Simulated assay, not measured.
Amino acid sequence: MSGDRWLIALDIDGTVLREDGVMNDPVIAAVGKVRDAGHEVMLATGRSVAMTLPILDRLAISPEYVVCSNGAITLVRDADAPLGYRREHVETFDPTEVLTTIRENLEGANYAVEDEAGLYKFTGSFPDGTLGAVSEKVPFEELLAQHATRVVVISPGHKIEDFLSVVERMGLHKVSYNVGWTAWLDIAPDGVNKSTALERVRALLDIPRSRVMAIGDGRNDIDMLEWASAEGRGVAMGQAPDEVRAAANEFTGTDLDDGVATALAGF
């Protein structure tokens, strides 16, 4: 199988998981079939490590590598690690400039900084479950002292169009950023995204670019889909917004219609 093995990278939320958190049986079965055929099926997600590992269990996969935090953290399988994986590559940055810039431009926003251990320190308020199980509320100034793998900003008082406009006007430098479905800004180290991590993984696994496949639905999947589409298969979920679809070279059904199972049916 090594001669024709594919690297298949799956987003989590809105892709293998429905937006309501349900994972449909046809998706689990399709992933299992591809896994059993000898292909490398992995996750590439914006989630933290702690929020990602349980999804591996639900899918019954144990890939060599897992990409978390929108590419800032890559895990490698390690039988001696407490949860079966250890951090293989971690990218961090100083969040001071971006946090202070955003605070000057977005009145009433809430901020969170994730460190390489997966701890979130935050100000303001975040919906339950969005920051995972390990988080600590701190004064804004304490956020500036962190080595960040990711900065998250939510601004419920802004409509998504207004939020996008403000973000564009800020002219953020030295970071990579994307905006989620709602007024949610996700900021990673400069030049780091899912595609940069996946290219590193692909090289480590020695799988050609022509045999990579990525499936996703959100703006944080655009780089990943462009990377996969260049020589392989970049698949946008049916509910993906237009700019995400533009990055793909294939399309499938929505999360509600088991789009992942449809996309994997040919393996």
Score class of each variant (00 low, 15 high):
residue 91 E to Y: 01
residue 92 T to D: 13
residue 93 F to M: 15
residue 93 F to E: 13
residue 93 F to C: 12
residue 94 D to E: 08
residue 96 T to G: 13
residue 98 V to A: 13
residue 101 T to S: 14
residue 102 I to Y: 11
residue 102 I to C: 15
residue 103 R to F: 12
residue 104 E to M: 11
residue 109 A to Q: 13
residue 109 A to P: 12
residue 110 N to K: 13
residue 110 N to S: 15
residue 111 Y to G: 12
residue 115 D to W: 08
residue 122 F to H: 07
residue 122 F to G: 05
residue 124 G to R: 06
residue 126 F to P: 01
residue 127 P to V: 02
residue 127 P to A: 05
residue 127 P to I: 03
residue 130 T to H: 01
residue 130 T to K: 01
residue 130 T to M: 02
residue 131 L to E: 01
residue 133 A to V: 10
residue 136 E to C: 04
residue 136 E to W: 02
residue 137 K to A: 14
residue 140 F to Y: 14
residue 140 F to A: 14
residue 141 E to Y: 04
residue 142 E to K: 09
residue 143 L to S: 04
residue 146 Q to N: 08
residue 146 Q to I: 11
residue 149 T to Q: 00
residue 151 V to T: 08
residue 152 V to Y: 05
residue 153 V to G: 07
residue 154 I to S: 10
residue 154 I to H: 08
residue 159 K to D: 15
residue 160 I to F: 12
residue 161 E to T: 15
residue 162 D to Y: 14
residue 163 F to Y: 15
residue 168 E to K: 10
residue 173 H to T: 07
residue 173 H to Y: 02
residue 178 N to Q: 07
residue 179 V to W: 02
residue 180 G to H: 00
residue 181 W to P: 03
residue 182 T to Q: 06
residue 182 T to N: 05
residue 182 T to H: 04
residue 184 W to V: 03
residue 185 L to S: 08
residue 185 L to I: 09
residue 186 D to T: 06
residue 187 I to S: 12
residue 188 A to S: 11
residue 189 P to D: 09
residue 193 N to P: 07
residue 194 K to P: 00
residue 194 K to V: 06
residue 195 S to W: 09
residue 199 E to G: 06
residue 200 R to N: 12
residue 201 V to E: 03
residue 205 L to T: 02
residue 205 L to D: 03
residue 210 S to C: 02
residue 212 V to A: 03
residue 214 A to K: 01
residue 216 G to L: 00
residue 217 D to E: 15
residue 218 G to C: 07
